[in-house]
Amino acid sequence: MSWLPQSVSGRIYASLLLILAPAPFFFEWINQPFYLDLLSRALILAIAAISLNLILGFGGMVSLGHAAYIGIGAYCVGIPSYYDYYNGWLHLGLALSVSASFALLTGAISLRTKGVYFIMITMAFSQMVFFILLSLEEYGADDGLVIYSRSEFPAWLSMDSSTSLYYWIFGLLLLSLFFIHRLVNARFGRVIVGSKFNEQRMQALGFNTYRYRLVCYVISAMICALAGMLLGNFAGFISPDMISWARSGELIFMVIIGGVGSFFGPLVGTIAFVLLEEFLSLITVYWHLIFGLMLIALVLFGKGGIHGWLSLLDRRGGGHG
């Protein structure tokens, strides 16, 4: 059947989505709500990693400040909730518009730089947000802010239960994957991908690459803010810690583990990251050391990440697509 993925990796990714779809019912059946929480958190971070992959993997823009947009999304739930505004559409609209405005402003400046300067300037903007939130005592400063109730949507879209919130997360994950797939395969995406390799050449073909990259950056930030909005609702608590540059670094690792510039790589990379983080911490308190060594090994020897390994199966199986 032509609609089935042709490659081995494509079938594995499709199977993964099919496994993820009924996950809440499975965990309810085995009475392990903890695993549903773990998976929900992983998928929220996967949305953020997918958004980062749009600029990093496809556009070659290595941002060390992307966690700022998770924070912006989360605070767009937390601050209105603090004033008893729980309307979900308000939260959603705020998350999208504030993140887009911030990305437009900071991207317009950051994208005038390249390479290591871009990394540093994105980190600097993210740290600015971090310290601003840290100074806002009204909203808990470094103690953070508790969100007592989740964003309110019509009953059929409610995110009150763990299961319904999971389907919000899963739905937005699918939408993000679909949207980015369409975007990258459209002319817009080809210009972004081409610019990653040779921006000057793309300009000589008549494209104002700065504008394309800026739009790409803003779209990526908005998707990341959606992850932040979900994280605020999921955790019921927000703090400036969500925005620290270390969180942005973790997002980069999630993308690298999964495979830079692949559509599903960040999803599997984030799930692997969150599971490793969780289970290694059960084994030893020094889990950071083991985790760090594993990441170093991956960067040194596992070029292409998990997606790279799965692509080897495609070549052996002669599959394509």
């Binding site: 080809r190 991908v193 081409g194 390799f197 040779n198 050449r201 793309m202 073909l205 008549g206």
Partner: peptide
């Protein structure tokens, strides 16, 4: 563009 196919190199721009 080495990371684009021949078709994409021609059509995208």
């Amino acid at each position: 563009f080495p990371n684009l196919s021949v078709r994409e190199n021609l059509v995208a721009t």
